[in-house]
Design a protein around this nucleic acid. Structure first.
Length: 424
DNA sequence: TCTGGGGTCCTAGGACCC
DNA sequence: TCTGGGGTCCTAGGACCC
């Protein structure tokens, strides 16, 4: 058997740890730039505030009901996530961190009669040590774990936050109570399709034949999903993901910009971020994509939808040097830039990532990289150790009018000395 | 006027190779 | 007039996840 441990309303829960008066009160957390709602407590859900909905649409509801609103504070959430995962690691033999707020646990070797007590022990200890409430779903496969977890979360009072699917009867009941759009791996497009075929819950999907699924549900991915619903393991526990295959940094701007100079500054800054991430995993990137998004506008009787343009380059030598990547990116920005409309967003994606010891040099390029590598190391040490961005490239700008809005961010209680939590 | 950011996996089709 | 069979690699795009 396996389990998934999933933090309840994770971002909002992190805020509550450092502001206990918010327990029992509605809280929401916003995405970058205060654009969307990305985390809601149960009290906020009960008010009808939509997940992933634009903030401005719920603003009235939020103000009327005195909902506490936070901008996202990724320093805090990242650190709290680490604490949760460390706790699970100490309590269980093997975990796979699936996302910032979820981990699968391998329960092979645990006596099935003890699963219930074991799950409650994990739940209780995690909550005690970190202050973050969790729900646990247990089943034979990852997909069944997710089914169990979803139901456990939906019905915390009745289930105590833990559901175990052991017998076929338990599985059947759970699957019947899971509408197709709630199945892990079924998104909007497939859900609509399934409904069209009058397949409405997970049990009905489970009983479809393989040929049909193969043809209508994304090929092999769909077949695996249905097998997992039947209790046949098709998704292994994964080794911890050490190196990413692509690294992206993209942001909306705080306000739309028109100037090429500002656009370049933003892109140079994103490259700096992405290259730091790249170096942290000891990787080098072989390709680079820059994209920019123009604002939608209506002038007189012409209207434009927001539109994205992108350009990419394959680097002759894979690199992790910020300055090299910035230089290439600037050329791409110049290629993309026009003055016709304002820009609201830009991003960079580093691809073709390889470990840095495999770099393929070529005849026509010198090996100056050593010098660069030393420089990058020094810059990274200063920025990681003292304060982010204390040393940066001039092309990344100093005024940064385009920086995102984060008007309601809490303090970085656990990662910045100047912002430590104060107990009176 | 206002709608985030960062990922993964799979497939189809084209280019190219022997 | 006639023109094989079997691969690999790359890219773009779709779908999905949190």
């Amino acid at each position: 058997m396996k389990a998934i441990v999933d933090c309840n309303s994770f971002y909002a829960a992190c805020e509550r740890v450092f502001c206990p008066s918010l327990h029992g009160k509605p809280v929401v957390v916003l995405s970058n730039n205060d654009g969307c709602i990305v985390s809601r407590t149960d009290e906020a859900k009960a008010l009808g505030i939509q997940m992933a909905g634009p903030y401005f649409q719920s603003k009235e509801l939020i103000q009327k009901n005195n909902v506490r609103v936070f901008s996202s504070n990724y320093h805090l959430y990242g650190d709290m996530s680490k604490r949760v995962m460390e706790t699970l690691r100490m309590l269980t033999p093997s975990i796979e961190v699936y996302s910032v707020d979820e981990a699968f646990i391998d329960l092979d070797g645990i006596d099935e009669k003890n699963l219930f007590n074991y799950a409650h022990y994990i739940k209780h200890t995690t909550e005690l040590w970190t202050g973050i409430p969790v729900s646990i779903g247990i089943g034979a496969t990852k997909v069944l774990c997710k089914v169990a977890n979803k139901l456990a979360k939906k019905n915390k009072k009745k289930t105590g936050g833990v559901i175990i699917l052991q017998t076929i009867e338990e599985q059947m009941e759970a699957l019947i109570n899971t509408p197709v759009e709630d199945i892990w791996g079924i998104g909007n497009a497939h859900a609509r399709k399934l409904r069209m075929f009058n397949i409405n819950n997970a049990w009905e999907l489970r009983n479809m034949n393989e040929g049909w699924v193969q043809k209508n549900l994304g090929g092999i991915t769909g077949v695996r999903l249905v097998k997992e619903l039947k209790g046949m393991n098709c998704m292994d526990m994964k080794e911890p993901l050490i190196s990413k295959k692509m690294i992206a940094t993209t942001r909306m701007f705080g306000k739309p910009i028109l100037e090429l100079k500002e656009l370049k500054e933003a892109v140079a800054t994103y490259i700096s971020r992405a290259a730091e991430k790249l170096r942290r995993q000891n990787g080098v990137a072989g390709s680079l994509i820059v994209f920019v998004v123009k604002r939608g506008e209506s002038n007189f009787n012409i209207s434009y939808e927001p539109s994205t343009q992108s350009a990419y380059i394959n680097l002759s030598i894979a690199t992790d040097a910020t300055n090299v990547l910035i230089a290439q990116a600037m050329l791409l920005v110049e290629k993309l830039y026009t003055t016709e409309r304002k820009y609201i967003k830009a991003g960079v994606v580093l691809g073709n990532i390889q470990p840095n010891y495999t770099v393929q040099y070529n005849l026509f390029e010198s090996r100056e990289n050593n010098k660069e590598r030393k420089l990058m190391k020094i810059i990274d040490n200063i920025n990681f150790g003292i304060e982010a961005d204390i040393v940066k490239f001039a092309s990344a700008g100093t005024k940064r009018n385009w920086k995102m809005r984060q008007e309601m961010r809490s303090k970085r209680f656990t990662t910045k000395w100047e912002e430590l939590f104060i107990v009176k």
